[in-house]
Design a protein around this nucleic acid. Sequence first.
DNA 1: ATGCCCTTGCGTCAAGGA
Length: 256
Amino acid sequence: MRIATYNVNGVNGRLPVLLEWLEATAPDVVCLQELKAPDEKFPAAAIEQAGYGAIWHGQKSWNGVAILARGGTPVETRRGLPDDPDPAQSRYLEAAVNGVVVGCLYLPNGNPRPGPKFDYKLRWMAAFEALAGKLFDLGEPVVLAGDYNIIPTEADVYKPERWVDDALFAPDVRAAFKRLTDAGWTDALRHLHPDEQVFTFWDYFRNAFARDAGLRIDHQLLNAAAAKRLKAAGVDRSARGLPKTSDHAPVWIELK
DNA sequence: ATGCCCTTGCGTCAAGGA
């Protein structure tokens, strides 16, 4: 079972890229972030045509998350975080697919720091951490996949010194991510590629992708039941090179 | 220290992203 997460940066603007990638790689489950579309503008027909059932949690202009299942339909288990600090922002959706619980998240960016946006990021992370605590011991495999907007360590950014004041690399943000892995959640990509430089995002500025000036901010955290089944993980870098593409690349894991 | 690029929205600029 292959589970992918992909911040599409506008599901309608990137629809040709999304469909090309689905066709080329055929993941079993896909978590999408940054739909930037209200519910009624989610391209459900085109996605169904590609062979995927879907559930989505949209919002006008910003945010928005969706879960796709190849040849089926995800069974929704949660919409929004419990104690969400701002329920108007669509950033969390959760579903069961073939016995695996998949949480799809779009964690707030938090810039500029300090400020209200950074405070919101911290509050959102606290609510997410509380939910993760409940999900870990569910008994079934759980995968929390999405755009975390967190650079976990200096190894996850092309030039750490440039990012010391950024909300993605802030000490309390990195500490929150470390608390999750210390609690037993497995950072799938880093677990299988401990010494490799692996990026999932390259900004549109300064020809960043061509220079490989990237960040690793899209993650899949696995509870113990899911980690036992982890076989492989990787980044579909080729999608980042397509015309009119997202600034993120899809990240995938393979579970036995 | 700042802009770079790219998206959406009632829109020909602003705001958000990371």
